[in-house]
Design a protein around this nucleic acid. Structure first.
Length: 428
RNA sequence: GCCCUGGUAGUAUAGUCCGGUCCAGUAUGCUCGGCUGUCACCCGAGCGGUCCCGGGUUCAAAUCCCGGCCAGGGCGCCA
């Protein structure tokens, strides 16, 4: 089948071409009939007029979402709203759609998120959902391009791991021949192993958390965009992070203007450097605004939103966290070991990224593990990496779905994951 | 795991507070008919509902009560 896109057909007026797509709508006015045909590039009106169209074409009964191919010619038309119409010679039905449809693809009749997720394949035909995932795609493309151009290489960490090597989060246990294995909660160990030899690395990987959370900002399977860099401290990688974010936002702003229109949204690329406040300052700021929060508490979602408005910043860093709130491998401050070289990036009121400078000395790592109540014995492999010339290094991780939420303005993370996995949802 | 709110044709929603006039209304959809330029075409007729499931109260339950399941939100958990 020699098929051209609808977009291309509109640039080849008067030429016989074959287009194919989904029937969005049929308007039968009596002796004249319009079929609105949609493909991924756009929509065109197919016009059937007496004297112009083969009589056999009139007998075709077409329903919404039927898939057809049409051979004919596009022409400019002042009467058609889009300025073009398509005069068919032949129409063939490639596949019929059952009726009625489980949701309105045109987006005029609302459907609940649950219904949309149950019929996600079809929800992906709605302008709104398409816009979200086009934006997500452009974020990813920009992430990879920015880092690749700066000499980072993409690494491929395993997703099946041998043990809960980092403690903390609950993992999904899976059988692995005669052993037990787990789905990775993070590529942490692997990106560090790569960075201490390859210096500048990044990865995009799915990770799994077995917590039974049930919130609009958590999923049990998410995708992380990670960077790890040798000869770098927390400040160095914060700079990389803000530059990466600005690059991604600029890219998406330029390439997705149509999609942002669809979502009724405008975005601004924040000016660099982003504001940096310490954990302690954030606590003080919240307390002075009447929030009840104590040193050592983590910020709730609403407190993160509060901070965003108190600071008047769309994006900012919170750094210098208490070691109790961050993982064991976070590098403690030399002058105050209660604080670690760790940071969170808040964007659009959502924690989209966090990172740390990592401990690269085995002895310090062991003492931090003990402080956290973890057994250094079970981290032997991890600790060993730093015994053979491991440079200082640091890194961070952006949650792809979280970032997409912030950029698209969605309030439920499930909107930003094509096939979300949560406490109750395992299909489709 | 806890708290709040909800579950009504394919989809979305009204009705629930204060039980009867609701054998459930509206929009959209679907089917059929009419219409020569529509733009979510229009007009007419029709179709489509175990009112989430189970139990209870009552002469009478979509409506009140109890339990369950599911959904949305808030919390907890989330190195």
């Amino acid at each position: 089948m020699e098929r051209v896109s609808i977009e291309e057909a509109m640039s080849r007026l008067g030429e016989e071409v074959t287009i194919a797509g989904w029937v969005s709508r049929v308007r039968d006015i009596g002796n004249i009939k319009f079929i609105l045909l949609r493909d991924i590039t756009g929509e065109i009106q197919i016009t059937l007029k007496p004297g112009e169209a083969e009589p056999s074409l009139w007998e075709l009964k077409l329903g919404r979402e039927d898939v057809i191919s049409v051979t004919g010619k596009a022409r400019a038309s002042e009467i058609a709203h889009r300025g073009f119409e398509f005069i068919p010679e032949r129409i063939s039905v490639l596949n019929r759609s059952k009726q009625p449809l489980p949701l309105d693809v045109s987006g005029h009749v609302k459907a609940e998120l649950e219904t949309r997720l149950n019929y996600r394949f079809m929800d992906l035909r709605t302008p709104r959902t398409r816009a979200i995932f086009k934006i997500q795609h452009e974020l990813l493309v920009a992430f990879r391009r920015f880092l690749t151009e700066r000499g980072y290489i993409e690494i491929q960490p395993p997703c099946i791991i041998s043990s809960a090597s980092e403690g903390g989060a609950e993992l999904f246990k899976i059988p692995y021949f005669e052993k037990e294995a787990y789905l990775a909660q993070s590529p942490q160990l692997y990106k560090q192993m790569c960075a201490i030899s390859l210096e500048k690395v990044y990865t995009v990987v799915p990770v799994w958390r077995a917590e039974k959370f049930n919130t609009p900002t958590h999923l049990n399977e998410v995708r992380q965009m990670d960077v790890e860099q040798a000869f770098a401290d927390d400040e160095d990688v914060m700079k990389v992070l803000e530059e990466t974010l600005a690059y991604m936002l600029d890219n998406v702003k330029r390439r997705c203007s149509k999609e942002f229109d669809t979502l009724g949204r405008t975005i601004e690329v924040p000016h660099l450097p982003l504001r940096r406040i310490s954990y302690g300052e954030a606590i003080e700021l919240l307390r002075s605004s009447g929030e009840e929060i104590r040193w050592g508490d983590d910020f709730t979602k609403s407190q993160e939103t509060r901070l965003t408005s108190l600071l008047g910043e769309e994006a900012f860093f919170i750094k210098d966290w208490p070691s109790t709130l961050k993982p064991f491998y976070a590098m403690p401050h030399q002058d105050n070991p209660e604080l670690v070289h760790a940071f969170d990036l808040i964007y659009g009121g959502i924690e989209v990224s966090s990172g740390t400078q990592r401990i690269h000395h085995p002895e310090l790592l062991i003492s931090q593990l003990i402080k956290k109540g973890l057994d250094p014995e079970s981290f032997t492999h991890y600790i060993e990496c730093f015994s053979y010339g491991a440079p200082p290094h640091a890194g961070w991780s952006i949650g792809l779905e979280r970032l997409t939420m912030a950029v698209t303005g969605m309030s439920n993370i499930r909107e930003c994951c094509m096939f979300p996995r949560d406490r109750d949802r395992l299909v489709p």
